[in-house]
């Protein structure tokens, strides 16, 4: 029953830039890899380690956090905090023995529909290449 591996990717998108960018990708009929499931949050700063770590431990093959470009945050500074928290998390996930690029932070603006598609497709390709998150089958998580 060797089925082609299709990853499960969780994408946290900020409402103002990245979600709008994703919408633009849709309304421009850009093809985007379906393995990413979008979860809308108001600001990338809402996404903290609790959300990302639990996604990973519960078997997400990849987690994408996308927010406004630095300086563009609808709430002025949220994405800077998001970035710091993310930098910390990158360190932490290392000890889970996961490839550090299973989690990704990207800046996607509302006009960057194409970029959204590129980032998601590339990320999905990367994750597919990496194969399933070993934790998906880890009974301890």
């Amino acid at each position: 029953m060797e089925k082609k591996f299709k990853p499960n990717i969780v994408g946290f998108l900020c409402n103002w830039c990245s979600y709008a960018g994703a919408d633009l990708a849709g309304s421009s009929k850009t093809q985007v890899d379906p393995s990413l499931s979008v979860i809308r949050v108001m600001c990338s700063s809402r996404v903290n380690s609790n959300l990302i770590l639990s996604s990973l431990l519960w078997g997400a093959d990849g987690v994408l956090v996308a927010g406004c470009h630095p300086g563009d945050c609808h709430y002025e500074q949220g994405n800077y905090y998001a970035r710091r928290r993310f930098a910390l998390l990158k360190k932490i996930t290392k000890i889970l023995n996961l490839e550090p690029d299973r989690i990704q932070l990207s800046w996607i603006s509302a006009s960057e529909g194409k970029r959204y598609a590129e980032i998601v497709n590339q990320f999905a390709r990367d994750i597919t290449k990496k194969g399933p998150n070993p934790l998906t089958r880890n009974s301890q998580t």
């Binding site: 380690s49 770590l53 639990s54 431990l57 078997g59 360190k91 932490i92 000890i95 089958r137 880890n138």
Partner: peptide, 26 residues
């Protein structure tokens, strides 16, 4: 989750606790 993994450890979220705690206070 148990079906996905074949087996699910109890108590739940033990590993999440440790790694999460690490992210909070490291």
């Amino acid at each position: 989750k148990a079906e996905q993994k074949g087996a699910l450890r109890f108590p739940l979220n033990t590993m999440l606790f440790h790694i999460g705690r690490m992210s909070h206070m490291v």
